[in-house]
Design a protein around this nucleic acid. Structure first.
Lengths: 113, 113
DNA sequence: CCGATATTCAACCATTTGGTTGACGTTTGG
DNA sequence: CCAAACGTCAACCAAATGGTTGAATATCGG
């Protein structure tokens, strides 16, 4: 389930900090790692987790791998949360129906997969 | 950081399912555990994780411990996510429409209770 | 009071996670 | 061509996670 990987990825403060950095601009792996007090390999792993969750995409140009934020990957998770946060006692059946059509729309957008 | 525990708690499908169940009504621990194919102790642990994250509160009355959804605990995490997503108006519009009908349904249900 | 019910605790286990280090393959610039 | 920079891989480690069982603790109903 994508919600699993997305929420799990966001559960780590280092990874959230990385996402916040990428909000400003695309970055090379080395530059992402720079402000952190841990090894480059550790950051590389964090980026792999974020990429697996779809929250970051990576493109290699020359010897530099550029990291790009992919905020759309948060959509489903955000919708899921909003159903709780803002609306108490929502009808679950109706909500699941709503979510199903929402996600269908997503799927049709991702036709290249 | 509360975001750590909230996101981590939401990263597990069993725990998300529990929250969805509590969306409908407060429940005793045993009743929460019922639909799952795992031990009561395992569910008890999951509820502890959710409680530690503030997503659920538990109140013991007699020998029964009642579990209550605390959606406010998602607020900070939800806001954090939305700061990334300029999520499409599409889904928000649909969601608001969904909500409008939801509240209508709720209102009509209340009259029959 | 007694047995059943509700829940947690404790010990244990396998797997995952988050980190390290050092070696490795590419690409680049001089 | 060669050294330096970029990034991953592999092996390893400690700690956390998610699950199991069985015993323990309250509390209820009769």
């Amino acid at each position: 389930m994508p919600l699993d990987t997305v929420f799990a990825a966001l559960g780590d403060p280092t990874r959230r900090a990385i996402l916040a950095m990428l909000l400003e601009d695309d970055m090379a792996v080395t530059d992402v790692a720079d402000p952190f007090e841990m090894s480059l390999a550790a950051i590389s792993k964090h980026l792999q987790v974020l990429t697996a969750a779809g929250l970051v995409s990576q493109e290699k140009r020359g010897r530099v791998k550029w990291c790009k934020l992919e905020p759309d990957a948060m959509r489903e998770a955000s919708i899921w949360m909003q159903s709780f946060g803002q609306f108490e006692a929502v009808n679950l059946d109706d909500f699941e129906r709503f979510l199903a059509t929402e996600l269908q729309d997503d799927a049709s957008e991702l036709s290249s997969d």
